[in-house]
Nucleic acid binder design. Structure first.
Ligand SMILES: [Zn+2]
Ligand SMILES: [Zn+2]
Ligand SMILES: [Zn+2]
Ligand SMILES: [Zn+2]
Lengths: 161, 161
DNA sequence: AGAAACCCTCTAGTTACTCTAGAGTCAAGA
DNA sequence: TCTTGACTCTAGAGTAACTAGAGGGTTTCT
């Protein structure tokens, strides 16, 4: 294998964390790579490309499941790509749905915000009051919606220096 | 305690799952309720209201941490509500940021979609091609963004009937 | 009395990672 | 040569906000 990279080098090339690369491997998105004498992972160009594609899909907020499906097409270049197109369309509607929902929320939140202009005793705060007497029932919807916040607060410890 | 509800009744009143109520209790959002002789949880009106407020905040996509902060103001009605207003504003910007990000994604995804009009062999699919040669670097941003999909696929088993 | 419907605690699983611990490997500097 | 430091390895736990299940006890209906 010409041009073999260690995991840290692959990480630098793709902007992907080392631990994430190992995670993708065990999640079956990246095949098990070759190993050096000292048991270090060694990656070739095709893996670099594959990881780049994965990261690009992630940056488009696709799930690993969606990405796995796409990768199966990369691995079977003769297959008809109809499902690729469909998957993309579905994902676009995931995003569109979420935007619509968030716009609704945003409006509701801004209305709520208007209920308290000055700071005052909490018991008179219009916001807390507005939250208590919740207006819209807002039925549980089974749509594919996620949340607004970062998924898993990666509170990174400050390194020495 | 007049008007004591069992957990299932509280669930029905608030539209909140029983397991979720227990989860909120152990997460410290709901105080430990009274218990019946048979060790069943018993809730009064104030808990009903409190849970309703929690659910309303959740429907606005606040985190439990944000909600916990709000609840501390409900519990200390004399405190000045300035932080409530601030928290709400911050959360509004969480939502607004996410909307902006998703709109960007939507545009990118629609551009991608245009790259394949017909179905064909995967190796010629413009979408897969477009994904391979990822254009924008899209640096890892530490903003408070979540994902588009449901957080934890609750694939519910079909109940009999 | 027996069964259905409810409730209890505890545990594990979900997503897509991130962080840690405890160890091994490798290149360069003293 | 020895040592230091940067890098790598595995395995396991932790994150958010629940959901689902096992293996029991309780209440209620018939
Ligand atoms: Zn999607
Ligand atoms: Zn206020
Ligand atoms: Zn927020
Ligand atoms: Zn195509």
């Amino acid at each position: 294998m010409r041009n073999a990279l260690k995991i840290g080098e692959l990480a630098k090339h793709t902007g992907c964390d080392v631990a994430t690369i190992r995670y993708y491997e065990q999640a079956g998105l990246l095949p098990k790579p070759a190993r050096s004498d000292g048991n270090f992972r060694l990656y070739g160009d095709s893996q670099v490309e594959r990881l780049a594609l994965i990261r690009r899909c992630r940056s488009l907020d696709m799930t690993l499941l969606e990405i796995r499906t796409l990768l199966r097409f990369c691995d079977a270049p003769e297959r008809n790509c109809g499902d690729v197109n469909a998957l993309l369309e579905e994902h676009i509607s995931h995003v569109a749905d979420r935007i619509a929902e968030l716009r609704r929320l945003e409006k509701e939140l801004k209305n709520l915000r208007r209920l308290c202009q000055d700071t005052q005793a909490a018991k008179h705060c219009g916001i807390l009051e507005g939250l208590s007497k919740g207006a819209a029932g807002s039925r549980r919807r089974k749509a594919l919606v996620g949340h607004v916040h970062r998924a898993h607060a990666p509170r990174r410890k400050a390194k020495s220096a």
